[in-house]
Design a protein around this nucleic acid. Structure first.
Lengths: 221, 221
DNA sequence: GTCTATAGGGGGATAGAC
DNA sequence: GTCTATCCCCCTATAGAC
């Protein structure tokens, strides 16, 4: 696959687990195997050095291609980033919608399900999540707007649950938009600090965070 | 000061208020006026385009210098970023310590004071805070380690308050380290979404956030 | 679809005059 | 301390053979 001589340690070995999970999550969604491999290589490289500090040679080499090989599959480096960002964000949106739809029709249960799903994903795919978060600004105007739109849908999903809970009288919230932002801050920032080597699994952090957010909105009596 | 022809709109006009506040906050701390102007220009440029996408020519021009003028005051572009990051982070640490020391000896009051101070600062200096947050990885190893050490001291300050509250029985927390991280996530992420044009002042967001964090740790009973 | 080779532009940092 | 001029490397993207 890659053209490194056997035994050469992989530059981004610490993320091999996430790379494998990405390969699985993106199989059948990205058009060719090589394009998918380039996108995974892009995630690892952007995470390690940032988009602008990463060269197309880095990415191509990691995917086992020659320097120019990337351009058969993507128009530009920016398009590669765009494809990563839009796919990752769309899958997150789908996941949170699914989690909410599967939960009982109850604001507390739905909020917990949404937070759990978002945190679990942010921890399990922390490398990908962080790249998308950090490199949104590196996207072209139209591409950035598209990804920002998907993010707003995620935000809207959470805010709608809060509004529903307030309306039904089961949540007590001083400022719904700010509280929704706060809940999303918790979720987003997991990708920054989460380490696979830490004490808590993604599901455990998700459960802890669902409880923290629950406390933020429950009536204090 | 700057050498733009009169009437030319400033490229980063939306941050002029923060630029002025930075000039004041960094007066007397940075050795020369020109070095300070370069650091402020660096903050604005890095915020707009990111560290790697910003050229030393951009920064120098904005500070009213010729292309090479930066190198009289800083050894490299990286050193300029380092000076920004270490100064901004140290001032944040000093501010939160001061706020905690001034609060009564009571975990709830101290936690509220710490969160209020951190959020207020993150909102008021959101451009600077965000640059430091986003560009930590662009620092050299030793520089990054130094700034990370200062950040850990901030984190430690918050965690110590949580531990104290649990010890005294006034806080009820399932996992102190994770809760401390969550509190800091809220604080850090304010810099990402805060807009001067928004409905809430830095102090108002600070008060709302202090209440949210208070709810996260107060006994539920 | 992949390769090798290279065009073409940009930008960090320095040299040397004032 | 600031300027102008420029070195020199690197990197994105393309051309053209296989």
């Amino acid at each position: 696959m890659a053209r490194r001589p056997a035994g050469t340690p992989h530059r981004w070995a610490s993320n091999e687990r996430e790379a494998r999970e990405l390969e699985a999550a993106w199989a059948g969604v990205v058009e060719t195997e090589t394009a998918r491999r380039l996108m995974v290589a892009g995630v690892l490289a952007f995470a390690a050095k940032g988009y602008h500090a990463t060269t197309t040679r880095d990415i191509a080499e990691h995917a086992g291609l020659s320097p120019g090989g990337l351009y058969v599959h993507f128009r530009s480096k920016e398009e590669l980033l765009y494809r990563i960002a839009v796919l990752g964000t769309r899958q997150t949106l789908e996941r949170v919608r699914e989690a909410v739809a599967e939960a009982p029709d109850d604001p507390e249960a739905r909020l917990g399900a949404a937070i759990l799903a978002l945190v679990e994903r942010g921890a399990r795919y922390h490398t990908t999540s962080r790249v998308i978060e950090d490199e949104l600004r590196s996207l072209d105007g139209a591409h950035r707007a598209e990804v920002a739109g998907l993010r707003r849908e995620i935000e809207h999903t959470v805010r709608a649950i809060l509004e529903d809970g307030v309306r039904r009288g089961v949540f007590e919230v001083a400022d719904v938009p700010v509280t929704a932002l706060a809940a999303l801050s918790l979720v987003v920032d997991v990708a920054r600090w989460y380490r696979v080597s830490g004490r808590r699994s993604p599901a455990e952090v998700g459960a802890l965070y669902a409880e923290l957010v629950g406390r933020m909105v429950r009536p204090t009596s």
